[in-house]
């Protein structure tokens, strides 16, 4: 239901919630979330464009959450990343165009219940709620091998990408 990009966006926002009001450079976010640096930059600039996060260029800069974003439901993030229909959730499970209460598909009622609880979750969970669970830092696993996820590699690369903006 959640696309890979949307999951990454939520994990990134969780990292920024942990950071509080401090500016966090891209390479650090990448190292801590294991989201590849170039993927991460695209997601962050999208979130900045929509006013969820703000960025500061130059030395000591990076990204941080806008204070007002803390109260926004994660449904907003999904709408930004995956589009209004949040990855086809509002659609019929069969993909029938004509499926509705009057002419339901065979799974209409059951699927509506699953969908309602899913949409409830998106409304009830705020960005503030994405903070890391207590003790998660010490249990963090090293990132799997993948471009940009290694902190040493990431710093060189993203320093360039910040300059380029």
């Amino acid at each position: 239901m959640l696309s890979q990009t949307a999951r990454y966006a939520l994990i990134i926002l969780g990292n920024l919630v942990d950071a509080g009001t401090e500016w966090r450079p891209v390479e650090r976010i990448s190292a801590e979330t294991c989201v590849p640096a170039n993927y991460l930059s695209k997601i962050l600039s999208r979130l900045a464009k929509e006013g969820v996060v703000e960025s500061l260029k130059g030395w000591g800069g990076g990204y941080r959450l806008r204070p007002a974003s803390l109260k926004r439901p994660i449904g907003d993030v999904l709408a930004i990343i995956d589009g209004k229909g949040a990855a086809g959730v509002s659609t019929c499970v069969f993909g029938f165009e004509s499926c509705d209460d009057a002419a339901p598909c065979p799974l209409h009622d059951q699927w509506s219940r699953v969908r309602d609880s899913y949409e409830g979750m998106l409304d009830d969970t705020t960005i503030a709620g994405l903070r890391s669970p207590a003790g998660a830092g010490s249990r963090r696993k090293p990132c799997a091998k993948r471009g940009g996820a290694d902190p040493a590699q990431a710093s060189g690369r993203s320093a360039k990408s910040i300059k380029g903006k």
Binding site: M1, I11, G14, R113, S117, G120, M121, P133, G135, R139
Partner: peptide
């Protein structure tokens, strides 16, 4: 885990843990 966190469990739940468990259960029931 809804967020794909390998370390997420009921002792160290992510923000969506409980509600996501409800969604999953509803899906399994269906």
């Amino acid at each position: 885990c809804a967020l794909g966190r390998p370390a997420c469990d009921s002792e160290h739940p992510c923000a969506m843990h409980d509600e996501w468990a409800g969604v999953r259960d509803g899906f399994t029931r269906m």
